[in-house]
Every structure is written in structure tokens, then in C-alpha cells.
Design a protein around this nucleic acid. Structure first.
Lengths: 234, 234
DNA sequence: GCAAAAGTGTTTGGTCTACACCCATGA
DNA sequence: TCATGGGTGTAGACCAAACACTTTTGC
């Protein structure tokens, strides 16, 4: 990769650098399950253009810090959430965001358990919007399509990996797990088949603890592997 | 996404802008099958740092053109290849590439049929390296890990989509198709099962043409759908 | 006549799907 | 006593994997 340093320096000196290369931003699609609905964390755009519309938490990427570090920094400053599962999604060309320069947005998506989210989140800065009701709100820039892209990836990851653990508490019942799948994927799953399949995959281990659910005691499980495993779940 | 224009402008005026945001580059992993081997297109880094090492074709992204347009431009200028199947792979933080600024590389991978490749490519600028022999050459920057990442994605796409058409000529025999799968995936496939499966998926149609292969006549097929289809192949 | 590649079916084992009832207990 | 959710097994359909021989013709 040959970078023409001289040309870039020349453009600097002419103060037109900001026209010749795009600015890099990082936007985050944070999913959580709240009130049995899949929700997305959004914030309100404070200034023109698109002032007042809902947008994804994001910011300009700073040099000197890796993408991961930029992610953590943006997440913390924008939402006060700390330490979530994250994955890079795609880089989008957002040419219309600002007339003065072009922006490339590196989009990430993140999953967070509701309880951790409620504990940490700063609701003066952010709000939760149900995924199924995104059509009813006004989203800024092309953030709607970024969220839809993230949702597709999430669906796929649910079906083929153990990613579900990142949207659940550490210990959970099989019914909770199944419900998370049904909420996100949007269809019902047969209870017996689901349990048989999950158990046969040996991705969970019993914690030994029980939780009282209404009247019965339900076994609490946890994922036996800390790492994400690629394995056909459904 | 709140961009702090004032802050950025201030940094411009101080001429330290190039320290505060990273430069965006685009690198391309081009795969083709040559001599029954999966190969990658590489070029030689012409200057320091990493001078003389093999690197992926790439260049700094220009504002004013979309990522796609930047891709086409870089591909054409660097290899003289025109019009290939491409897909965005991942964005990598390449902090060590140049001490003076940080680079984010948006990596793409591309597939090209050998014949189109040979017709177009400018071999004074590029060369082919067998994927399995990448360990024997010196690759610059972190391009080895980018290529490995691309290979994983390619494997997955082969198994679950009709992407194979982009590395084959338009018309091909079932044996050619099977061979492409074996070369890329790296293991043998049962001929009868492969044919049964492929035919049952109805992703191919007979062209009516035959090709003389040694002594027998083999039916030539083509993909019936122009678009990439997501469907479990293997 | 032999090497090389095309083409073609069947059996078997495993996996997925559909489906229904009992139990415990809090209200 | 009833509403709620936990927990369990089986039969049939479908799919994947293993496996071998005949045909053609260039050399």
C-alpha cells in the first residue's frame, strides 16, 4: 500500500485535506431484551443536520487508539455502559451526513443483558426503542439500514453460535433461553425439541442452583464455554 | 452522531489534523484458481516502510467517491482487472503501518475467474501466490491475517451460498464445479453425493452445450440465478 | 488395451419435526 | 380448584454419507 505522503502533506498545507479523505466515525447498535421485546439503544442528535432525530450512539474515531479502544470510549461516554459483547459489523459510506465532508462509519453491534444495562445506563443520554417499532420513529442518517443489517447478523449468530449468552444473565433457565430465541427470531419454537437440541450440544452446564418460577423450581444453567462457539443451534 | 466540527476545524488550523484522525485505506484480497490451486493476487511494496515485501493491492480512500467506486478505481489502477465479484470483509486498525499516522484499512475480497484474470491482469504490477504457500513469502503489514480472514469468509460462503459462480467461467461442468470446491475447501467430496445435492438445489441449469473432456462429452451448466443465493450447499 | 474422466442408485444411520400429558404450587 | 410454568418421550419423515461399476475414446 503506497501512501503518497508528499501529496497528502501538500494538501494539508493548502488546508484542503478535509476534502480529500473521508472522516471515520464509529456507530454502535446496542441490542438488549427489555419487557420481552428486542430493543435498540438510541440517542437524540443534538445538532444540525438531522437535529432532533434518533440516531445510534457514535462519534468520530480518534487516532492513537485502536478501534476497540475507540469503541469502549464511545460506549462509555455516550451511554455510560461498560464492557459488553461487541462485534464489528460493516463499514458504511455515509456521504450525505454532512455537506462539508464525507464520512465512513464503522458500525459495531453489541449485546447487553437487561440487568447490566439498567444498572449502568444513563437514561438522560439514551433511550430504548423496540426493534419492531423502529418504523414509528424518525431515525437520522442511514441508521435504520445499519440497524437492520445488525439485526440480520444477530439472527444468523443466534442460529449458528452461542452468542445468546451475551444477552442473558450468567445463570438462566432453559425457558429464558428459549424465550430469548423466540423474541429475537420472531417465531415460536417447540419446547421439547429446543431443550433436546440444546442439551445434546453440550454448550450448557447445570449450575446446581434452582430458581422458583411461579410455583415450580427451574434448573439454572450457564454456558460452559467462555468463548463464542460456532455450532448449529437451530 | 455528533461531530465536533469546531474542534476539527481548530485542529486543521493548527495543522495537527493528520495526527488526530486516522487515514482510511482500502486493501483487496483477490482470489482466483490457477493451475488447480487457490491463489491470491499480490503486489510489491515500492517504498518504506516494508519496502520490497509482498502486500495486497490497495490505496488510500478518496473522499467524493463511494467505497465501491474507490474499490473499482484501486482495482483498475493496481491490477488492470475490471469488474469482479467483491464483498467487504472487515476494517482493520493498522497502527504500525506508518509511524506518522494511523491507518484504518477497509479490506475487501474479490473473486475472479482465471480466464478473465489472465486476459486483463497486468503482470508487471502484480503476481499470483498460491494460498497454501503464503507461509513461504514475506508479507508486509498485517496482510497475512487479512488474507486468512478472507479465506475463512470464502470457505463459509462456498458452503452456504452460490458464490462459486464468481470464480468459475460462465459455463462449466459439474466436475469443474466440484473441483473448485475441493481446491478451496481442501478436502475431497464424493462425486455422486455432490452431483445429487447440487442438482436437487436447482441452482444450476443445463446450457444444452457439451464439452469434450478427454474422451467423453460433459454437460455444461450455468447458474440459473444471477444474484447470490443463500442456501446450504454442503 | 489401458488410462482418464463422465455418469449413475441404493442402503443405512442419524437428525429434525410434530405432537400431549403430568406435576408442583401460589392465588 | 384452577391457572401457570417446568419437565419429559416417541414415531415418522427427511437428509446425509458411504459405497462401485459402466461407458467413451484418445493415446
Amino acid at each position: 500500500m503506497a501512501i503518497n505522503h508528499d501529496e497528502i502533506k501538500k494538501k494539508f498545507s493548502e488546508n484542503i485535506f478535509w476534502l480529500s479523505i473521508p472522516v471515520l466515525a464509529l456507530d454502535i447498535v446496542i441490542f438488549t431484551i427489555f419487557n420481552d421485546k428486542l430493543c435498540v439503544v438510541l440517542t437524540t442528535r443534538p445538532k444540525e443536520p438531522e437535529k432532533g432525530k434518533l440516531i445510534l450512539p457514535g462519534w468520530v474515531i480518534k487516532s492513537g487508539f485502536s478501534l476497540e479502544e475507540n469503541f469502549d470510549d464511545i460506549l462509555l461516554r455516550k451511554t455510560w455502559i461498560d464492557g459488553v459483547y461487541k462485534e464489528q459489523l460493516y463499514s458504511f459510506w455515509e456521504s450525505d451526513r454532512d455537506p462539508r465532508w464525507h464520512i465512513v462509519s464503522i458500525a459495531y453491534y453489541a449485546l447487553v443483558d437487561k440487568d447490566q444495562f439498567l444498572k449502568d445506563a444513563d437514561f438522560t443520554k439514551i433511550q430504548l426503542v423496540e426493534y419492531d417499532k423502529l418504523g414509528e420513529v424518525e431515525l437520522g442518517f442511514d441508521h435504520k439500514s445499519i440497524i437492520e443489517y445488525a439485526k440480520k447478523r444477530l439472527n444468523w449468530k443466534l442460529e449458528y453460535t452461542t452468542i445468546a449468552k451475551n444477552i442473558l444473565p450468567i445463570k438462566f433457565t432453559l425457558t429464558q433461553l428459549q424465550k430469548a430465541y423466540e423474541i429475537i427470531l420472531g417465531y415460536d419454537i417447540d419446547k421439547r425439541n429446543f431443550r433436546k437440541k440444546i442439551i445434546s450440544l453440550k454448550i450448557l452446564k447445570e449450575t446446581g442452583d434452582l430458581e422458583k418460577v411461579r410455583s415450580n423450581m427451574a434448573k439454572l444453567y450457564e454456558f460452559s464455554d467462555k468463548e463464542l462457539k460456532i455450532i448449529g443451534i437451530l
